[in-house]
Design a protein around this nucleic acid. Structure first.
Lengths: 205, 205
DNA sequence: CCTTCAGGTTAACGACCGCTAACCTCCCTG
DNA sequence: CAGGGAGGTTAGCGGTCGTTAACCTGAAGG
């Protein structure tokens, strides 16, 4: 493995800029020349690093889904403390999951946007992989939510989880203009409280 | 005004199918030939009804924003009961707003999807109009929310409203496959409770 | 019955876009 | 100091897409 004193790889630069552009104008709305220009090379030079435009999108989406799932599993394992899950504190785990998702939504807005917007542009095999990762991520949340609110039927719990994702992923929609935005910490706290409030309201029949 | 025994106008058919296709594959991902085929005519025949592909998207987005705003104003006026707003019951108004938004999200999924996905593809003037309508809709909610939760600062209230929109608009993301979905009424009740819970959690310092 | 016109049709143009081909230029290494 | 590969460049091909042009048709109206 190369020593990392060189800053981000060319590949990483490309992926980052591509994510931003795809999020801003949509996959079909961005040309390869623009992506190239964003990293200082032009057009076909990208093909030294990726097989094609589709491959960039695929790598982005698989990366996002994988990162979310891996992070969630790590957090669950930490909160579990080596036990078998029967004695873990669901409230603590849920808070940790929410925190992780919020960090992602606030720090990687373009990726969050892509994640639920451009999935259909993938090749079948890639799309299946991404959906599988997403589904595992959702089911992990559903399990914890149902531990906390046993009265909640499984379909309702799954819908509730999707809805909270919608809530947490809403930050990209906040308008750019002059109106004052809450700071990052304020925003994180607000989103966290709202997510908990939404689950509580869903779970108390 | 033409008597309406003829069913939907050609224009209306086209708009409906275009909305569905745009929502499914994105504005740039759909060709005019496909839109034409979806209503039984082909390709350039659409230009007898619309100035171009852009015009269809513009009419859709302006229509959505206008419908949401108009509906919200009507509901607010009804709940206001002819008063000047000083003695209205904010809880009642908020419930009515939530109900209206949920009806829209559940009954017009493609439009809700377009609404926050393809705004940037519009001409400048149209985009400004849509944003203005959206902003008025948001401010209307913010006003009511702040009446109910005076402790909530305005930037936080605005963020909270955006987040609840994200929650309510999350229904298109529910997967198609076999896993059982809640029925429409169950879903509406669930979303309503979660929205109220989220606001309550945001508003209680 | 002739005209008109709304609402279609097909052909084709021009622009754009993803991608390949062919070539160039450092830099590293034996 | 050869040489070879990594990482660029520009030119250009093939296909697609939005749009226009030119033409057709059936029904309504005087």
């Amino acid at each position: 493995m190369a020593t990392r004193i060189d800053g981000p790889t060319r590949r990483e630069q490309i992926l980052k800029e591509a994510a931003r552009l795809f999020a801003e104008r949509g996959f079909h709305g961005v040309g390869v020349d623009e992506i190239g220009a964003a990293v200082g090379i032009s057009g076909p030079g990208l093909y030294r690093h990726f097989a094609g435009k589709d491959a960039m999108l695929a790598e982005l989406l698989v990366g996002i889904s994988g990162q979310l799932l891996t992070g969630a599993r790590r957090r669950l394992a930490e909160a579990d403390g080596g036990g078998d899950g029967t004695d873990r504190n669901p409230e603590e785990v849920l808070d940790s999951l929410i925190e992780g998702h919020i960090d992602f939504a606030l720090d990687d807005r373009p990726l969050i946007t892509l994640h639920d917007r451009e999935l259909d542009r993938l090749r079948d095999s890639d799309r299946k992989l991404v959906r599988q990762l997403q589904r595992q991520y959702v089911e992990l949340w559903v399990e914890i939510v149902r531990e906390m609110y046993p009265a909640l039927a499984e379909p309702s719990a799954r819908s509730a989880v999707h809805s909270v994702f919608g809530l947490l992923n809403s930050t990209p929609h906040l308008g750019r203009p002059g109106s004052p935005l809450p700071g990052r910490d304020t925003m994180a706290t607000l989103l966290h409280r709202m997510a908990r409030g939404a689950f509580a309201a869903a779970g108390t029949a």
